[in-house]
Design a binder for these strands. Structure first.
Length: 549
RNA sequence: GGUCCAUUCGUCUAUCGGUUAGGACGACAGAUUUUCAUUCUGUAAAGAGCAGUUCGAUUCUGCUAUGGACUACCA
């Protein structure tokens, strides 16, 4: 039976969407797009006690940032309207509502159906009673072996049940699981999984306390009604998949049951266990796509966006955590992922989260960016460092900024890091690095720099930025691309002066560098003098002489 | 404890019975760079163990070990 591919991402709004959830959403999205199907976003808010305000908006904003588009359900409205409105969580689609708390009436009829067909029953056992039972009887399970000794509609007369319900006694509806039955689940990633129904307990499907179904019931009803063709979700759901099959069967929907694919989990980088929301703080990297402000606790958790990641990098990194095509390709655009992704190449074992690899991906995407774009991004970082206490003293033109960014980008993972690497382009050094001084600032350095000032003063403003191609050293096997460019005055004024005086090139140039940068780092010295210009360059040498004498 | 799932370099993974078991991240070393970084080259690094099937197993089967998930009126 050929049917339209429809997948859903169904988070519960209990906090920030964590990175494992993002990957689940991504795989769903890739699968939907590849097959020309629909991507549905459904909010599973059946646990009223764990609802976190703002979580829904967070989920939608995160998916938006990452480029995971929702076709139907919560958050799809904006896209369908072709514009952004304040109503981030607007719904779109004819199978709604897409928030489970808004579907109570629907669940009522299906709970009724199960009750009437004898697939479910009403139970009055209180949480406290069950708690006590679990303490008394080891491995207590509410199932065929115990249900006849509990307080439920199977053991109580019908009028008594009715009386209790009328009296407002709280109850739950439980699924009646037939014992000793082999339940088969055909998983697209793991193949056939068989489980005996004896180990499945009579799951609670509905609780009268908040008039809401539990996950299991709501999930099956919604997936059926929304005509979901493939359920792609985390491996933590594998143990309850047989129960879900039983539910489809009880409803008489087994023929149109969706196909299942259970994804391997994302594991902690150190130690054991699955990656949790706490690991981010503990290990110093984000586990959330966006920074999250918990309105209940006031806690702030870091996000990939705020840490300086590009969404393409996060997507690429996440896609490869649990999926890999044949071959060695590592860089994938979203379109390439949509083209190449396949469920049967998803690995079966959990993947440890390797943050270093994530950084490497960001570096790659940063390198791929246009220098002009990077310059624009960096400009706001620069502006943020222009404070009254420490104002920027040397301003760069757009072209200069673009050039600087081009020089420095291969050294950094994030745009924000650029500042640490090249703040000296904007501010004269306030202090001089000790280690560099010990190594590069010698007794004769002040004298050399004093003389250098005289030498540089002879260079005219026009000549200052003249570039020349010096006769390159012969290319060798080790050095196939000898540095060909420098600035004219370095080549024809400074170098000859050094040679004349018999000074060491390294000694003079490194001292010069310390004057300009404040440390022994940075790009080629002629790049620096070029950007700084004659006046600033001389000022810095004088300043250094002043302070280091 | 029970049930289910998994197991190739430290990490992510390629291999769909015959390979010097490949790539990437990370690590280390060397070269280049008048600084630092980059870059380049190279090195170390893996089939959990034991049986079986087979002419031949990383690949198929079983057992053991290890890891993980689940075991709620949470999802």
């Amino acid at each position: 039976m050929e049917r339209k591919v429809r997948v859903r991402f169904a988070p519960s709004p209990t906090g920030a969407l964590h990175i494992g959830g993002v990957r689940t959403a991504l795989y769903n999205y890739l699968f939907a797009r590849q097959h020309g199907g629909d991507m549905i976003l459904r909010i599973e808010d059946t646990d009223s006690t764990r609802f976190v305000p703002g979580a829904e908006e967070y989920i939608i904003e995160a998916l938006q940032w990452l480029g995971i588009e929702i076709d139907e359900g919560i958050g799809a409205w904006n896209r369908q309207q072709g514009r952004l409105t304040k109503d981030l969580c607007g719904q779109y689609g004819d199978k709604g509502p897409y928030r489970q708390s808004e579907r109570r009436a629907i669940y009522h009829t299906y709970v009724r159906q199960l009750l009437d067909s004898g697939h479910a029953y009403i139970a009055f056992d209180t949480p406290e009673e069950l708690e006590r039972k679990r303490e008394e009887v080891k491995n207590f399970q509410y199932d065929a072996s115990t249900r006849m000794s509990m307080r439920n509609s199977l053991t109580m007369p019908a009028d008594e049940v009715q009386r209790l319900m009328d009296a407002g006694e709280q109850y739950v509806v439980r699924f009646l699981v037939q014992p000793n039955e082999e339940v088969h689940v055909n998983d697209l990633i793991r193949g056939e999984v068989v489980i005996n129904s004896n180990i499945i307990d009579d799951k609670v499907l509905y609780k009268s306390a908040d008039d809401l179904p539990t996950y299991h019931l709501a999930n099956i009803v919604d997936d059926h009604l929304m005509e979901v063709s493939h359920v792609i979700r985390g491996e933590e759901w594998l143990p309850s998949a047989p129960l879900h099959v039983l539910l489809y069967r009880a409803f008489g929907w087994e023929q149109s049951m969706p196909r299942f694919a259970h994804l391997p989990l994302l594991l902690k980088p150190d130690g054991n266990g699955k990656l949790s929301k706490r690991d981010g703080d503990r290990l110093g990297f984000p586990v959330f796509p966006l920074e999250f402000h918990d309105q209940k606790t006031g806690a702030v958790s870091s996000g990939y966006r705020e840490s300086g990641y590009y969404p393409e990098a996060v997507i690429n990194f996440l896609a490869l955590l649990g999926w890999h095509d044949t071959g060695d390709k590592e860089m994938y655009t979203m379109d390439e992922l949509i083209r190449d992704f396949s469920l049967d190449r998803v690995s079966k074992a959990g993947a440890k989260f390797d943050y270093e690899k994530g950084k490497w991906f960001n570096h790659q995407y940063l390198m791929l960016r246009d220098d002009a774009d990077l310059a624009r991004e960096f400009a706001s970082v620069v502006a943020a460092h222009d404070t009254p206490e420490s104002p920027i003293t040397h301003r760069l033109t757009e072209a200069q900024l673009t050039h600087v960014v081009g020089l420095m980008k291969e050294r950094v993972t994030f745009v924000s890091e650029l500042w640490e690497q090249c703040s000296f382009f904007f501010k004269a050094p306030e202090e001089y690095d000790d280690k560099s001084l010990r190594k590069r600032w010698k007794e004769e350095s002040p004298r050399h720099m004093q003389e250098l000032i005289g030498v540089l003063e002879q260079v005219s403003e026009e000549d200052w930025s003249r570039r020349v191609v010096v006769p390159a050293a012969e290319p060798t096997a080790e050095n196939p691309d000898p540095q060909p460019t420098t600035t004219w005055f370095i080549d024809t004024v400074v170098m000859p002066w050094i040679a004349e005086q018999g000074y060491g090139v390294g000694l003079v140039m490194n001292a010069f560098r310390i004057c300009l940068v404040g440390a022994a780092r940075g790009p080629h010295i002629w790049e620096i003098t070029d950007i700084l210009g004659k006046t600033e360059t001389l000022n810095r040498v004088r300043q250094a002489l002043d302070r280091l004498r």
